[in-house]
Nucleic acid binder design. Structure first.
Lengths: 335, 335
DNA sequence: TTGTACGCGTTATCAC
DNA sequence: GTGATAACGCGTACAA
């Protein structure tokens, strides 16, 4: 009659199997030293009672939750969906569950973060950009977040591990493609550039292009990685600009921006992509392959990156290679 | 020196504040009876040690986790992103954290579900379709998932609470609009129709249209709510069909399908939307408003629905109104 | 208002 | 290989 909450515990199984609670426990650990006979008895009893070990109690006793907080601040970018799918799937394969923390509302961010940390997550993974460093300090300050990982983005915070692809290599490939295709007057469209966890694509492209074409290209930035922002930017910036003065290619920091840019080129300015203005993106989101966008983009090796994340969680840190993942350019009709 | 793991516990705070552990505890509960002076002392000490109550231990002691599992099986639909954002935000406001469970991989589904249940989630919320009923039984079978909630979809499983909008009312509005706009030869494009948790849009539309126009329209189904599926369907189905035999409007079960359909109409068949074939969707995803799609769609009151979810979790069940949420038709250029 | 047993379900560690 | 003690950090119930 131990189960006051209707919960079946190891004690119940032990009683039914005629062994001690600790033997029941051993039966559920693959490495434990236990006789095959005992294990069988236990498993049979467990099956009968449909017992499963309680992860809450386990976590409390081991100080390991197998829980990872995923911090997402930007739900306007379809790539987030892709990353979330990949990460949850691979984390699960590695034995981890995922706590989804929505940090898009500044107001709730620290509360959400704190809450996650109070659950003793084994790590917090950042999939976004606009984290004020203060929030991070809060999370780390409580010493409850054991690891802070920035995913798909560089971080300059020393308390942070970042897993991302080599922006330099990626942009080199992209630049090479754009230049080879004959474009000579690019405009780079970037997202916010003020965070300590950021992308290096803009700086890299500017410098690479200068090296290649001998001229430093222009760039423009928007406040968020939202297609609508890019749409408005392109709409405004190209208004009343004579066609000869327009860039011949828009190199966008990611697909979200690229898609907004394409729509503006077509629907606001009545121009063609790529004939009048070409466009490139980054991430290769599912929509990029639609016949409407046919977006030339760069695909990050998300699976490898997610696996690296699991390795980090397991403590098999191959430290230095983590910022050097290499993806591949997906060439479509947009550039 | 209690903190073997480097963790600060209530005992530490108690020692510093010169009170008992239980007084520390009370200071953190807003309803507790404690003197203002004691509370102040405690809070000061807590601040100094940067102590926060451990939710793991709390959950274990109270049998309440304030944790909700969000089961998602379909990451190809951008509406999932919208729902996830809304739900996580509002759940957090209600004091709940969200466990994101990816059930898109059949193989891992039961494992993920089991794992979530082992964490004693207060509820599991389904945001998807292809849950085999067996998985659900597994989750409920362990008696660890206290509540099983189907969100934005009807459920015929009695052990389930479903929160969704009134498909009948919604489709009535939509039907009315389509008919009024002069369309007379619709084709309904639906997703999979075999699950016990499903949408009633197809049946409703067919019957409503029959009532209105006197003829039962045709319909077609695809295996998943993936734009690509709709794209292929429309591509194949309309191939070599004389223009006069084509439907004049495609009523799609959701925006994901509608967007795929629009692309196929334009890029495979070279037809115009809405002049040659009009299209309607459902969900009003962000992309629906892009100048490319200008999709006429129906927006569900997600915020209200999410709030209802919180109410259910809190036990304030207003039981019967839960399937009768009413949204609004967003009329754009596509139909 | 404040302090004391005892329990939540598990695991680490040591004895047998 | 198996059983027992202590501990994980907190909440409930009751006594002071």
């Amino acid at each position: 009659m131990k189960d006051q909450h209707g919960t079946i515990t190891a004690d119940d199984v032990a009683a039914l199997a005629g062994v001690s609670r600790w033997t029941v426990n051993r039966a559920f650990r693959k490495d434990a030293s236990i006789s095959a006979k005992s294990r069988e008895k236990v498993m049979k009893a467990a099956e009968e009672l449909s017992y499963v070990p309680d992860l809450l109690a386990t976590s409390l006793a081991t100080d390991r939750t197998n829980l990872v907080a995923l911090l997402v601040d930007d739900f306007a970018n379809p790539h987030k969906l892709v990353m979330m799918e990949r990460l949850t799937r691979i984390l699960r394969k590695g034995g981890y569950d995922t706590l989804l923390v929505n940090t898009s509302n500044e107001e709730d961010t620290s509360a959400a973060l704190l809450n996650a940390s109070q659950r003793r997550v084994d790590a917090a993974v950042l999939i976004g950009i606009s984290f004020n460093d203060q929030s991070l300090e809060t999370a780390l300050g409580a010493k409850r977040v054991k690891k802070l990982i920035v995913f798909a983005r560089m971080s300059e915070n020393d308390n942070t591990i970042s897993i991302c692809c080599d922006d330099r290599a990626a942009m080199a490939t992209l630049t090479q493609h754009v230049f080879s295709a004959g474009y000579r007057n690019p405009l780079f469209i970037a997202g916010p550039q003020t965070q300590s966890a950021h992308l290096q694509r803009k700086e890299t492209f500017l410098s690479l292009w200068r090296h290649t074409a001998g001229r430093r290209p222009e760039f423009a930035t928007v406040e968020r990685y939202d297609p609508k922002m890019a749409y408005d930017l392109v709409t405004e910036r190209f208004r009343d600009v004579p066609k000869s003065k327009l860039p011949d290619v828009l190199v966008c920091e990611n697909d979200a921006l690229a898609m907004g840019a394409i729509d503006a080129i077509r629907y606001e300015h009545g121009l063609r992509v790529p004939e009048d203005i070409a466009v490139t993106g980054f991430d290769d989101v599912p929509q990029a392959s639609s016949p409407h966008y046919k977006l030339t983009s760069y695909r990050q090796p998300l699976t490898d990156m997610a696996n690296a994340l699991v390795d980090i969680l397991e403590g098999k840190i191959r430290s230095k290679k983590l910022n050097a993942f290499v993806g591949n350019l997906v060439i479509r009709a947009s550039a």
